[in-house]
Amino acid sequence: MTTRTSRDAGLTPAALQQQLLANGDAPRLLDVRTPGEFRTSHIPGAHNVPLSTLREHVAELRTHLDGGVVLVCRSGTRAARAEETLAEAGLADLRVLDGGMLAWEAAGAPVERGEARWDLERQVRLVAGSVVLVTGVAGLFLPGVHLIGTTIGAGLTFAALSNTCAMGMLLSKLPYNRGPRTDVRTVIASLRGRS
């Protein structure tokens, strides 16, 4: 089975706004960011189904996603992974919001806001930069400690080349980022309510 790439199935913020404002069948919005990110800001009417939860419950969710689905994350990367997962489960009519919430907010589109939090990318930069700085300084006094910073640099290079981030995945599991756990039954009841 060939899956579409997010580039083929993308949807611009302007096009999505137009669909949401039109009378008729608006697409379902699945925001695959962490609950903490979702609580900070999200598109009105979006359902929060973090990527890990979506993967765990894909068969269960699939039966309630019968129409057009737009997948949303911070920049589009996690939404593209969610698209692949749902396409492999047999869903069609999947779209990824081009540029994610960054593009949505830059377009001046409506956003529901909650408590402000640092997004994962900023947290990764803080942790990686701090480790490199501390081990670089410590390396002046303790030979070999600077190699820890070199390892972090290698990990960031791999993250860029593979479009994955182990540090981001680890940070997303912290209580600060998790927020309240997404209850799949509540999401499914909400999806059923739209039918």
Rank of each mutant, 00 (worst) to 15 (best):
M1R: 11
T2R: 13
R4F: 06
R4S: 09
R4M: 08
S6G: 14
D8E: 15
A9N: 12
L11A: 06
L11W: 02
T12M: 09
A14H: 09
A14K: 07
A15G: 09
A15M: 07
A15T: 12
Q17N: 14
Q19H: 13
Q19K: 15
L20I: 02
A26W: 06
R28C: 09
R28G: 07
L30F: 07
D31R: 05
V32E: 01
T34D: 02
T34N: 01
E37Y: 03
E37K: 03
E37D: 15
H42F: 09
I43M: 04
G45Y: 05
A46C: 08
A46M: 08
A46S: 11
H47D: 13
H47I: 07
N48I: 02
P50V: 08
L51C: 10
S52A: 15
T53F: 05
A59N: 08
L61D: 11
T63L: 12
L65P: 02
L65K: 11
D66C: 06
V69F: 08
R74Q: 15
A80G: 11
A82E: 03
E83D: 09
L86I: 04
A87C: 10
A87G: 10
E88H: 14
E88W: 09
G90W: 07
L94R: 05
L94K: 03
L94T: 07
L97Q: 03
L97D: 10
G99L: 08
M101P: 02
L102I: 15
L102W: 12
E105I: 13
E105G: 13
E105S: 13
A106K: 06
A107E: 14
A109Y: 01
P110F: 06
E112A: 12
E112L: 15
R113W: 06
E115K: 14
A116Q: 11
E121K: 10
Q123S: 05
Q123F: 00
L126S: 03
V127W: 00
S130Q: 04
V131F: 01
V131H: 00
L133Q: 07
V134Q: 08
V134D: 05
T135I: 03
G136C: 06
L140N: 15
L140M: 15
F141C: 08
P143N: 11
G144N: 10
H146K: 10
H146L: 13
I148H: 00
T150I: 13
I152E: 00
G153D: 06
A154K: 01
G155H: 04
L156H: 02
L156E: 01
L156K: 01
F158T: 10
A159T: 01
A159R: 00
A160K: 12
L161Y: 07
T164S: 08
A166V: 12
M167L: 15
M167D: 03
M167R: 00
S172D: 03
P175D: 09
P175G: 09
N177K: 05
N177R: 02
P180L: 14
R181A: 09
T182P: 09
D183N: 14
V187Q: 10
S190P: 02
L191G: 03
G193S: 13
